[in-house]
């Protein structure tokens, strides 16, 4: 095929326009929150003492960590959708939430006597955490990978990792509303494992799914 013929063909096809990736991502994000939220509320529900727990320190701190994680992943992800983006955030932004969590861990270690550490870290819901968070995150991960495919990423591994962490952050935020283990020691032990599974899955799948 001659290049000039190709140009003619492409010119004739100019009328169809796709949604901008930013909008696709926003829709996928909204759908992810709705789906993960609905999955939690209609199956396990919020913990019974949800409102009272909001008055404590440890319970809201879980949301600070998970929402910070989701927000940082969303920011890095939204720039990875494009081949070129001015003001691309450094991927180290993803470390903000882990650092916040680490500070919480230090505070918890100071607040608790050493013989209570192991029990707080182990908690009662570890298995729950490792299964529910990935389960809540599967649909969001799929939606994020789909929106990555609509864009034109040149960094599919980073994009996929962020897709998984974002899905995990959303899932963990809802899971945290159900889980009664509030110690930062528990959060630091199990949440990263659960979210990491989604992150690895995203990083492994994205190079295939988001090729163009």
């Amino acid at each position: 095929m001659k290049t000039e013929d190709l140009i003619d063909a492409l010119k004739a096809d100019n009328q169809r326009h796709r949604q901008p990736p930013g909008r696709v991502f926003a829709m996928a994000l909204l759908a992810s929150v709705l789906v993960a939220g609905a999955m939690l509320v209609f199956t396990m529900g919020l913990r019974p003492d949800f409102v009272a727990a909001l008055g404590t320190v440890r319970f809201p701190f879980k949301f600070v960590v998970t929402i910070a994680l989701a927000a940082s992943a969303a920011l890095v992800f939204s720039r990875a959708l494009f081949p070129v983006a001015s003001r691309r955030p450094h991927p180290a932004l993803l470390l903000v939430a882990p650092v916040i969590l680490l500070l919480g861990v230090v505070a918890e270690l100071v607040a608790l006597p050493p013989d209570a550490w192991a029990m707080s870290a182990q908690g009662k819901n570890a298995f729950h955490c490792l299964t529910v968070v990935p389960a809540l995150g599967v649909v969001p991960l799929g939606l994020m990978l789909w929106s990555l495919r609509q864009g034109a990423t040149t960094r599919p591994v980073l994009g996929g990792l962020c897709a998984g962490i974002l899905a995990g952050g959303i899932a963990a935020t809802f899971y945290a509303a159900n889980c009664t283990d509030d110690s930062p020691l528990f959060v630091a032990t199990w949440y990263p494992l659960a979210i990491g599974m989604l992150g690895l899955a995203g990083a492994a799948l994205a190079p295939r799914i988001a090729r163009w």
Binding site: M1, T3, L6, I7, L10, D13, H17, R18, Q19, P20, P21, L81, F82, P83, V84, A85, S86, G151, A152, W212
Partner: peptide
């Protein structure tokens, strides 16, 4: 030709302020 095709299918990823 590969690049022209890619430009065509991904032209929605260029943002006019860039």
């Amino acid at each position: 030709q590969e690049v022209l095709l890619a430009i065509h299918t991904k032209r929605h990823t260029w943002r006019s302020h860039e």
